[in-house]
């Protein structure tokens, strides 16, 4: 079991997870890097881990939540610093837009919206991750999207 084949293939999924929570590309990248370093430091545990993706996601989620808290405490802007890079500006606008929509959602609707529409997880995976039933996931997602629809309609 080496780092390249065991940990590295999870990078993009972890990145989307971190991005959904931090809403900041740079912070999300740092979170993924820190997640992978921690996983590497605990490599002695790898043979005992049945679900590597789930284990990494748990570490990543906790680090991303910590990062979001730090951002809130330091009044650090969730909207990324201006840059000349066009791709970065587009990402910044996208993140700002999604952040604005999800900010109006109460928990766990915001998290379920993020898991479904940013991470692209199935109802089953979301239910497992949040330890709720698939029916509950459908109900929360329905409410979350109804609120998002309302925001969009009211804006236009």
């Amino acid at each position: 079991m080496d780092f390249r084949t065991t940990i590295l293939p999870h990078r993009d999924r972890l990145y989307r997870l971190a991005l959904g929570i931090t809403m900041h590309t740079g912070e999300a990248e740092d979170v993924v890097q820190e997640t992978m370093i921690r996983a590497w430091e605990r490599r002695a545990e790898w043979p005992m881990i049945k679900n590597m993706g789930g284990w990494l996601a748990l570490i990543c989620r906790n680090l991303a939540l910590d990062s979001r808290k730090r951002q809130a405490h330091t009044a650090f802007s969730l909207i990324e610093a201006p840059t000349d890079d066009t791709g970065r500006i587009e990402a910044r606008d996208t993140l700002a837009y999604i952040k604005r929509l999800s900010a109006a959602l109460p928990p766990p609707q915001d998290e379920i919206f993020r898991l479904r529409d940013i991470e692209g997880l199935s109802y089953r995976d979301i239910a497992q991750q949040l330890a709720i039933s698939e029916d509950q996931v459908r109900v929360y997602l329905h409410r979350a999207r109804a609120k998002i629809r309302e925001q969009i309609v009211n804006k236009t």
Partner: peptide, 14 residues
């Protein structure tokens, strides 16, 4: 904008 934004984020990668 909603679907384009979610498309960008679901395709985000390092």
């Amino acid at each position: 904008q909603l679907f384009r934004s979610t498309a960008e984020l679901t395709a985000a990668h390092l």
